[in-house]
């Protein structure tokens, strides 16, 4: 199971995470900044979440595997 941390300060609003894992990430309508919908998503989301972290241009997503 993943544990996800996002850094809103680093986020540049590219939307890569929303495209990769729309059940886990969203963007704030007023700022475009990342919104973490689910910090502990089900295992079925692991690949999508890893993809989101890899694609994030600002390296603002950290995925810890306990």
């Amino acid at each position: 199971m993943s544990r996800i941390v996002v850094d809103e300060e680093k986020c540049v609003g590219g939307g890569q995470c929303v495209l990769a894992a729309p059940d886990v990430f969203d963007q704030d309508d007023d700022t475009g900044t990342v919104l973490l919908l689910d910090a502990d998503p089900p295992a079925g989301q692991d690949a999508a979440v890893r993809q989101a972290a890899r694609l994030c241009p600002a390296v603002a997503i950290t995925v810890a595997t306990p």
Partner: peptide, 14 residues
């Protein structure tokens, strides 16, 4: 980031 964030809202995925 301060300047870019003025315009990011217009280009969100939604």
């Amino acid at each position: 980031g301060r300047l870019r964030k003025m315009v990011t809202k217009y280009f969100t995925v939604r």
